[in-house]
Design a protein around this nucleic acid. Sequence first.
DNA 1: GGCGCATCTTGTCAATGTAAAGATATGCTC
DNA 2: GAGCATATCTTTACATTGACAAGATGCGCC
Lengths: 191, 191
Amino acid sequence: MTQAKTAGRPYHHGDLRRALLAAAAEAIEEAGPAALSLRDLARRAGVSHAAPAHHFGDKAGLLTAFAAEGFELLAAALQRIWAETGSLRELGVGYVRFAVDHRAHFEVMFRPDLYHRDDPEVLAAGRRARDALRVGVAAHRPGGDEAERVDLAAWSMVHGFATLWLGGAFSEREVGDDLEAAAREVIRQVL
Amino acid sequence: MTQAKTAGRPYHHGDLRRALLAAAAEAIEEAGPAALSLRDLARRAGVSHAAPAHHFGDKAGLLTAFAAEGFELLAAALQRIWAETGSLRELGVGYVRFAVDHRAHFEVMFRPDLYHRDDPEVLAAGRRARDALRVGVAAHRPGGDEAERVDLAAWSMVHGFATLWLGGAFSEREVGDDLEAAAREVIRQVL
DNA sequence: GGCGCATCTTGTCAATGTAAAGATATGCTC
DNA sequence: GAGCATATCTTTACATTGACAAGATGCGCC
């Protein structure tokens, strides 16, 4: 027979890899990375529970690809912002904006115990994102050790702000509900 | 019979709750919170696989207690530092130091999808830690909105630095191997 | 001395990750 | 266009886990 038990479903999905990564984003946004289940992703994509293994090996393999995708997205977003505004502050706001808009990716990217941290693609994508941040600081404070320290401080700042916001650590009284406004005020403190 | 199958093990552990929390710290330091297994903790403590459920209900319950313990430890550490030095910078260094010295606790505390975020004990302990940070900023920059913004910036900064350090996001070239020195330099940027 | 209750064990079940082996489609070669 | 190698997906199976229920044990209190 040419059809599986579920009528209308072809034996070959066609674009399963992409579908699984999209399903992962959904699932993680709903319940966090800890609750992620490969079998649930397979169900969402309409394939058998063992299908994901072919594309990603194991669960960590899937999250590796997911993290790499996230770093690519972040690098692209930061490069676009820098090209359009040339503003270091906007670069920082963009970093925070990315964390909130791509919450699932962000939560996996910086949790390397969930994936294969030495995978070449993740490493390369991570470097691209990191470099996209660095150009802004280099332009703002050119030269030497000073720039290096400002760079670390700026990264720490926006990363911490994004992480705390996502974790719900800020009270309403502290930050209100306007993400970008709050981020801009905080970023101003370090520039 | 008064002995379980493993000779020498009494039926009652005596201090199982504390033993399980200690085992959790070990296990999480070894493999991260995602790989934590209640049955493994039970094995480490030398009790049956269902024993943890009595003290903590379920896995999230155990992590709730673990997070609360972490916030208590953090609050105590910060209060001690403030009392001894009265320095906002040292308060920040202490925050980073805590994250590294109590890595397992820190990694759970700010991941509320792992535990019961609305548990009264966690909420209270979290507030105590938060307040311990705030006093430093209030003393350093007294009065009004400005202090509020500096407070958020300082917290974001040290939290981001600690998180990125723990995640291995910094390269050796960027920070060297001296945690406190690197933290001090970065903190200086926001004060 | 006995009773109530907290503590811990044993047994069980559904769900999950992973591996192995088989089924099906796709594309390349001739 | 026929046949075959290979990528893709399914089925089956197994060990591990979290959670629940029911029973065993012993501590403390009257």
